[in-house]
Nucleic acid binder design. Structure first.
Lengths: 334, 334
DNA sequence: CACCATTCCGAAAAGGTTTTCGTGACTTTC
DNA sequence: GAAAGTCACGAAAACCTTTTCGGAATGGTG
């Protein structure tokens, strides 16, 4: 910067003014400075700027498993939104699905002086711990939780799809097709999304006065869906299955096929997420679509608002999912 | 830090020494300082440290579409490896699939003073531009390209799976099953991976003295695979298809099914990547597996080496893929 | 012509750490 | 017992910006 100032024949403060678009600098001077900057390939030093302004222009993202479709899409959407808002994004993943890992990721991020944090990691328990850490360091760190447990963490603003409503949509769709009950392959209970979807499914069944079978445990993977599917296929009473996500639905479809139970002829299957591949599965999967891009934008917006205001906000921001009916569901053959 | 020093009754330099594990500080003093740090919940200021040491402890990741399985997995693997090596990772995505976008992402990263860059974005053309930018700013910025065009960019070290070899494996597998030729659904030509797989497929056919049909264009998506699949299904001469990735293979499987052409009875299909869902598709997909986690570790290792040495390295680091045979391929019924 | 506003720019402090150098105290060695 | 060496720590400079304040030049006004 000193060199630039020297070359342009001004002082370094003037260069700073040019960089920051300060009004009071003659346009002729500005041009000279800009020329010098280009000539020397000047790159402002973020560290020094951060030190002087106390603003890092960076937000932190704590992830757990970016291999899953939802989170990976979210990373993309958030980066996009952050760039447009003039922020960099730094990511820190939780090593494992437990409290210390999430805590550690947040610590690393804060150490890096991020201006705000968005978290994609699940673990209701970890959020309790986060709450504690947030109380330790009073609420000057803006944060938004994506898909966190709203009950356990009322003081953290959250944005998520309305999972219970989505599950309700799926379950009622199957009920309307005449199924006497709907079975459920659930995601891991550590994920609030999984629990909410399970609740939505339970409620929809209860409200319709139908029996609520035991849900089968899954871990979001097709492999776990396949395992659950084999169990369901063995029971001739099973005619409708709602899966916690599309990957597990893929596993269920496979298990049904192997067992010779036609989908949707004998068994109807519904997923959740609407993967890009969903229309091309065999059969094309009926599923609940959530608008990940919109969620990403919303969370970023919420974070920026908090950063600007310097005040923690609260509240749930739920977006409504849609049911996309394809060919994996049909009326119960009576 | 001043407060910590004051509380511990030492000067701030001593605190710095404790933080940086400098040897010459009496253990009793160290304990006092550590206690003070804990008491005041002291967090060292990264900006100031970066300013003083000229090291940001951050590496940059330029991505394009983290929605695709490969890249999203890679982000995960790299973050993991980076953390273990003591680095933060900051991501910047290219807005579009062209030169200025990639260039801009790199500029943003460099502005942020990252110590090195790993790029997951494709576009051979963009890499040419990157080469230019690297010459503008002489090689003090360590970099590694994942899946870049090795011919166009010999001076940038790269790590990738041996795509041509993988494509050869797949194609020869089909040839060995008696197929008279193998059709190909290719990824977008902007991606070097797609071009290398295409070349591997061509070579394998030529080497076997078989005719090389026109490849069908795809964009990695199941949708594009489906479109290509419909065209292939309409041609009764088609008995074997090698797809540039698993998603497109999903689309092809669907198209074959709709057209009433049994897989693998009438047509054999091979994919590339080995998605976690691949074993649960209908039929379970024969595909080429690449070890994404290993690739992530390797690229990080290469980057760290460069950062430590302060010298740009070059060379290709190829890892060998495996063919995973499942049920979507079978011998040609003669 | 003197005075005031306004515009443009420089001087200097501040931000929090690392690092080099120096100093005093203590230990070793012949 | 003195010289040499080691250890623990403090003083101060350096890293590169931003920002506040004040000064100088310019232009306009009474």
């Amino acid at each position: 910067m000193r060199d630039v100032a020297h070359l342009a024949g001004v002082s370094h403060q003037t260069v700073s003014r040019v960089v920051n678009d300060h009004p009071s600098v003659r346009s002729e001077t500005r041009a000279r400075v800009l020329a010098a900057m280009r000539a020397l390939d000047y790159q402002p030093n973020v560290a020094a700027r951060t030190l002087a302004t106390n603003r890092s222009q960076t937000i932190g993202l704590v992830t757990f498993d970016t291999t899953l479709f939802g989170p990976s899409f979210m990373v993309h959407a958030i980066e996009r939104a952050a760039r447009e808002a003039g922020y960099f994004v730094s990511i820190a993943s939780a090593r494992e699905l437990n409290v210390p890992s999430v805590h550690d990721a947040i610590r690393r991020l804060r150490e890096q002086a991020v201006e705000g944090i968005i978290t994609l990691a699940p673990v209701a328990a970890a959020w309790t711990a986060l709450g504690r850490s947030l109380l330790d360091v009073p609420a000057h760190v803006p944060i938004v939780g994506m898909g966190i447990d709203a009950h356990a963490m009322p003081e953290v603003p959250m944005v998520a799809v309305d999972n219970a409503a989505g599950a309700g949509l799926a379950t009622r769709h199957l009920i309307a097709l005449g199924h006497r009950t709907v079975h459920h392959v659930a995601g891991p209970p550590e994920w609030p999304e999984a629990r909410e979807r399970m609740e939505g499914w339970q409620c929809a069944l209860s409200d319709a006065g139908l029996p609520v079978p035991q849900a089968l445990p899954g871990d979001w993977s097709a492999r776990s869906g396949y395992a659950a599917g084999r169990a369901l296929a063995a029971d001739p009473a099973v005619t409708a299955v709602f899966c916690g996500n599309d990957q597990m639905a893929i596993g269920v479809l496979r298990a049904m096929h192997e067992a010779g139970r036609a989908v949707p002829g004998a068994v109807s299957v519904v997923g959740f997420d609407d993967l890009p591949e969903a229309p091309y599965l065999q059969p094309p999967l009926t599923t609940v679509r959530q608008d990940f891009a919109e969620l990403g934008r919303r969370s970023m917006h919420l974070l920026v608002t908090q950063i600007a205001a310097g005040v923690r906000q609260t509240g749930q921001h739920r977006s409504a999912p849609d049911l996309v009916v394809r060919e994996s569901t049909s009326a119960l053959a009576s």
